[in-house]
Design a binder for these strands. Structure first.
Lengths: 155, 155
DNA sequence: GTTGAAAAAGATCATCA
DNA sequence: TGATGATCTTTTTCAAC
């Protein structure tokens, strides 16, 4: 894994703020000429540091105002039980974020939905269909205060 | 606010999967010629449906392996108390996600950090400096199972 | 909404320092 | 690792249909 220097970090920062910035502009921002700048970007893409580029969409404006957080406890926590659960989660498009947690609960996931009914359908038709679920606790978000893409990387 | 038809939704879907796809390729994918396709993208950008474009960065690979979830309860919940809290959150780069919640806890936020010490510093130097914090409960993520950008929009 | 063409901007690559 | 310059691709912006 290549080490990141100050210029790499500047590049990452700029690309998180604007993924569509041109190489020329980016190069100018970080104090390089376009070629070496493009080379650094390519290397970071290949190394998986830059995983990809995405348009950021307003959830509400596309009819998905609900974010529900579900805390999930499994009955068994062997490696293969976790893998099976994680495979399922990866396939469900309603689950936007999912973390394996320390402490009481095993997983914390954020599920988006058009309304409460759609969320209930997700729980009933998908989540509870898995054997191995010990408990589910849901809290709903009243609003998104922040969802940032910009990681707090040292300058 | 313009209504989204099936083609708009396809465009959104493609742009979430690859924010850097060219207009030509995108047009082909959604079954349009480039000009109207570019126009639809521009309109959705202006309407704020597409909020922007960002590079997706691997948190671990840039030295930020810790994700901590902090549940926060405020002492007072008047409009202005919430606003003040949300302003602070918006300014703190360590907080990547933050939601206003129903139920017992007022806010749920995800804080990223290089290590536990950095997280503690965030809590001590920033979060607890706010008056109006009644309680903080932290759980740590052992790993990120999923963080998707692709919203589950009806086809 | 489509097509086609021309102008402008951007990406890429070989090469040299 | 960075700079330069030639080349090739893509985007944008028109017009006309």
């Amino acid at each position: 894994m290549p080490k990141l220097d100050a210029i790499d970090r500047k590049i990452i920062r700029s690309l998180q703020e604007d993924g569509k910035i041109s190489i020329g502009e980016l190069a100018e921002k970080v104090g390089l000429s376009p070629s070496p700048c493009a080379r650094r970007v390519r290397l970071m893409e290949q190394a998986g540091i830059i995983k990809g580029y995405a348009a950021i969409i307003d959830q509400k404006k596309v009819g998905l105002p609900i974010s529900a957080f579900a805390s999930i406890k499994l009955e068994r926590q062997r490696e293969e039980d976790l893998d099976r659960f994680e495979d399922a989660v990866s396939r469900w498009p309603e689950v936007l974020d999912c973390y394996l947690m320390t402490g009481q609960r095993d997983y914390l996931m954020r599920v988006v939905a058009a309304d409460l009914e759609a969320y209930e359908r997700f729980i009933k038709d998908k989540l509870t269909r898995l054997d191995n679920i010990a408990s589910i606790e849901t809290s709903f978000a009243l609003g998104q205060v922040k969802r940032a893409e910009l990681l707090p990387i040292a300058r």
